[in-house]
């Protein structure tokens, strides 16, 4: 009787199992790399209705973040500016610019400028801006160097691990109160002022929650 299967097929089950391991590893690596916020969110830079340039306003002119995002240190929500805020200056600065037509129309009609939200936490995350900035977490920690961005781009992953890294070891991430809105400033730890950071944590009673209900309600 001739051989139905070649001799090579004896090792086939082993080879298949081996391949499944390789495939499993490859797929796991691909999912880890591609299906997490570090890939999905970082780099998101939507086209805005007005080509507002943060590197000009916040960087070159040195406007404080709070000139426009005026509630960020008083409210959980960091507001977008009203079109009147733009018109405070643009009544006189480049009053005819076609790039500002949307802002002028909004100022006259009262209809909001349809800005596209870049940083969007899931609805089950109850993030409070005021609590963070008033306790030494600078804007730059989550939003990156906005003062150098022509188009606002999602710079950090803002994944749950990203939050927990800081909640577990806040001392490494805190900045001095006068540095919070100066995005080039380094953290207290980077300045070697670890004792100041520890004192700040004690004085401001900084106890970032690590329980689920701290952020999810």
């Amino acid at each position: 009787m001739s051989h139905v299967f070649s001799k090579r097929s004896n090792s086939l089950p082993l080879q298949l199992v081996l391949y499944l391991f390789v495939l499993g590893g490859t797929v796991t690596a691909a999912v880890t790399y591609y299906c997490t916020p570090k890939y999905l969110r970082v780099g998101y830079a939507p086209v805005q209705p007005v080509p507002y340039d943060h590197s000009l306003h916040a960087g070159q002119l040195g406007l404080d973040c709070r000139y426009c995002h005026s509630n960020v240190d008083q409210s959980g929500f960091a507001n977008l500016p009203t079109s009147q805020t733009c018109m405070n200056c643009h009544k006189l600065v480049k009053p005819q610019s076609p790039l500002l037509a949307v802002v002028r129309a909004s100022f006259e009609s009262g209809a909001p400028v349809p800005w596209v939200q870049v940083h969007k936490a899931p609805d089950y995350v109850y993030f409070n801006h005021a609590i963070h900035v008033n306790r030494g977490v600078s804007c730059v920690e989550c939003h990156g160097r906005i003062d150098q961005m022509t188009v606002v781009t999602h710079a950090k992953s803002l994944s749950m691990k990203f939050c927990l890294d800081c909640h577990r070891a806040p001392a490494q991430f805190l900045r001095a109160p006068q540095d919070l809105y100066h995005l080039a400033a380094s953290t207290l730890a980077e300045q070697g002022r670890t004792a100041d950071a520890a004192r700040f944590i004690q004085q401001a009673k900084i106890k970032p929650p690590q329980s689920c209900s701290g952020c999810h309600r």
Binding site: L40, G43, F77, N79, D123, H154
Partner: peptide, 24 residues
């Protein structure tokens, strides 16, 4: 990673990411 994109991020597990509630 970090590639610039103008398209909104894909939500792999959307679950309750976007709920029927009003935000500011």
């Amino acid at each position: 990673r970090g590639r610039r994109s103008t398209q909104p991020p894909i939500e792999v597990f959307p679950d309750m990411n976007r709920q029927a509630k009003y935000k500011p």
